[in-house]
Design a protein around this nucleic acid. Structure first.
Lengths: 192, 192
DNA sequence: ATCATCCTTCCGAACGTTCGTCAGGATGAT
DNA sequence: ATCATCCTGACGAACGTTCGGAAGGATGAT
C-alpha cells in the first residue's frame, strides 16, 4: 500500500523538519513517486499530517496503557523505573516520539486547537492511569504519608518529561544518567 | 534603531512559528517596513536568526548567572526553589525562553551544528555553576550523604526542564502545580 | 476469447502564491 | 558630497495544489 509508505516517510520528514520544514516533494521523492501522486491518497498536506498525527498520539498512548497493564503486578518502584527505562529504550531516536513532542510543544499555528486537544487527552489519560497506581501503593504503605497520589503522579510525569527532553536534546548516554539521577532522587522523595 | 526593532519582532515570530514558519515579509510588515529593507541591517535570514540566537542564549545564561550570584547566601532550598519560581515568573509566555527551547530541541537542519554547540555550552555552564553549590551544602551537612553533588545537580536540571516543558505546553497554572509537586518530592529526596 | 467499461494509481504540465534575495533609485541627515 | 536608510521593482526557486490523461488490472457482457 502506497498510502502507508507515504505516511511512513512523512513521519520521518515531519519529525526531522517540522510541519513547515517538510515538503511534499521531498517526501514523494523518497517514496519514489511524484508529489502530485500524494493527492491520490490524501486530500492535501494537512490531511496527511493530521492522519499521521492521529497514529502518533494513539501509538504513544498505547505504549503506556500496554506497559502499565502488562506489569501491573510489579512493585511500585519496579513498575515506575521500568516505565522510564522502557520508554527510553523504545523511543530512543524514534520518530514517533520525536514528532509527538515536537508537535505537542510547537504545533503549527493553524492546527493549534486540534493538536492541543489531543495533547491534553494524552496527558490526562496518563494521569488518570497513574493516580490509582499510587493510591494502591499508599494503601499498601509503600510511600510516605507526606505524599499524596496527586503529588506523586505530577512529579513522576515531570521526571518523564525531563527524560524526554534529555533524550531529544542530549541523546542516549546523557538521558541514561538523567534517568538514574532523577529516579534516585524521586524514589527517595516519595518512599516511606 | 530599526535593527533592534527588527530583532524584537523577529524574536516573536521565530518563537511562534519556528525558523521555517517565520517569514521576512511578515516580520517586516509588523515593523512597518518592506521586507527588502531588512537587508540594510542584516545579510539575510540566517544572519538575522543567528544574531538573534546569540542574544537569546546569552540572555538565558545571564539570568541564571545573575540569580545564583545575587542569592548565593540563601539556604540551599530557598535558593533552588527560588530559582524555579523566578524562572517561571520571568519566562512565563516569554518569547526568549520559548525560542531558546524550540531551537535547542528542534534546530533548523542546516544550522544544527552551530546551535547544538551553543546549547551544550549553556547546559554545561549551568551544571558547572550548580555543582559547587551542592558541594557546599553537602559540606554543611544540609543534604543526605546518599546524594552526590552530581546526582543532585542532574536531577535538579531535570526538574527545571520538566518545568520548562509544562510552562510551554500547559501554561502557568499547570506549571505551578508541577513546580510545587516536583520541588516537594525533589527536596524530600535530597535533604538530610 | 474478445471487448468495453470502470477504477485505481501515477505523472506531466501548469496554476497562483510565497519564499529569500538582489539591484537601483529616492530621501534626508550629517 | 557622503552616508545610512527605506523604497520600488523584479528575480529564480520552491511551495502546495489542480487538472487532464496515460497505464494497468479487474469486472462483466457478448
Amino acid at each position: 500500500m502506497t498510502a502507508a509508505r507515504i505516511k511512513e516517510v512523512a513521519l520521518k520528514h515531519f519529525a526531522k523538519n517540522g510541519y513547515e520544514g517538510a515538503s511534499l516533494a521531498d517526501i514523494a521523492a523518497e517514496v519514489g513517486i511524484k508529489k502530485q501522486s500524494i493527492y491520490t491518497h490524501f486530500k492535501g498536506k494537512d490531511e496527511l499530517f493530521l492522519d499521521l498525527l492521529d497514529d502518533v498520539f494513539t501509538k504513544e498512548l498505547q505504549f503506556s496503557v500496554d506497559y502499565l497493564d502488562r506489569y501491573k503486578e510489579l512493585s511500585l518502584d519496579q513498575l515506575l523505573y521500568g516505565f522510564l527505562t522502557q520508554y527510553q529504550v523504545c523511543y530512543e531516536k524514534d520518530d514517533n516520539a520525536k514528532l509527538f513532542l515536537r508537535v505537542s510543544f510547537f504545533p503549527p499555528s493553524h492546527l493549534y486547537d486540534v493538536i492541543v486537544k489531543e495533547g491534553y487527552r494524552y496527558w490526562d489519560t496518563l494521569e488518570k492511569m497513574l493516580i490509582p497506581v499510587f493510591d494502591q501503593a499508599i494503601a499498601a504503605g509503600d510511600i510516605s504519608s507526606d505524599i499524596s497520589s496527586n503529588t506523586a503522579t505530577i512529579a513522576f510525569l515531570a521526571v518523564l518529561d525531563g527524560m524526554f527532553v534529555e533524550l531529544l536534546f542530549g541523546g542516549t548516554e546523557r538521558s541514561l544518567k538523567r534517568i538514574e539521577a532523577s529516579w534516585f532522587v524521586y524514589w527517595r522523595g516519595i518512599k516511606k
